[in-house]
Amino acid sequence: MNDRIAELIRNAKPQAPSPDALLAALGSRGLPAASSSAVWLLRTAALFTLAAGIGAAAALLPRMGAEPPAASELERVSGLAARIELLESRVTPVTPEDVAAQETRIAALETQVYARTAIEQAVADYFVRRDAAERELWQQRHLEHVRRHYARDMEGTLAELKAQDLPEAKLVRAREILEQHGKDIEALIKQSYAQVGDHRRGHRDMHQQFASLARGAQDSLARVTGENDWGSLLGESPEDWAPTSEFEDLSDFDSMMNWMRRSSRG
């Protein structure tokens, strides 16, 4: 490395505060992980005592159930019997006309319920359509973003290979490998957006597949060039192609935009 640049950066090293104040602040926000061993032991002891208390209470319960009913319980049961008798005496006989009227009323209410269900369905359909449109839009943005940056990275990689005096035939083959890698990446992104309903899982799978594609391309490139380490040139990290696992669904535009801003400076 240019020593002047290294020295320049070294001299710009800023001071950092001690982590003690940070740990104290985290502890005051109720972060158990930042609390001391003594607090942890006290908490553990309290939980143990609570568990022992619950166990003892549970052991007593069967004995309490075996006791004969108290006088107050007998009074309560006889009071309930009297109330049932009173209610039964107030029941009036129902005529066929009454039943027909109730059926008519039920039918009217059911019609209203179905109408409401239809509106709910329409609203749900609208959201499905809106989500699909948003997904399409984000897919386009994502693909354009990746295409733009991959093309630039690919040309940079080929320029580096050329600078190393790689024969023309090998350069052509390297370009083919890199172009195919770009196509594979795009296909994978499209496939991820097609997984409707569980984007988080889709993105997680996608990350693993990015790594797998990069490994395949790296192997091919290594065979052509005789070099073994093309890791960063090919962007083996999933974050080169999509947001991290923090990107949980398509509504998390914040993460997507952060990622695009960050990677667009690459």
Binding site: A16, A34, S35
Partner: peptide, 17 residues
């Protein structure tokens, strides 16, 4: 206890900078 604190002490300065 202590494990998270060790991570904080190990990386706080670098993260801060």
């Amino acid at each position: 206890p202590g494990s998270f604190e060790t991570l904080v002490r190990r990386y706080h300065a670098a993260v801060y900078r």
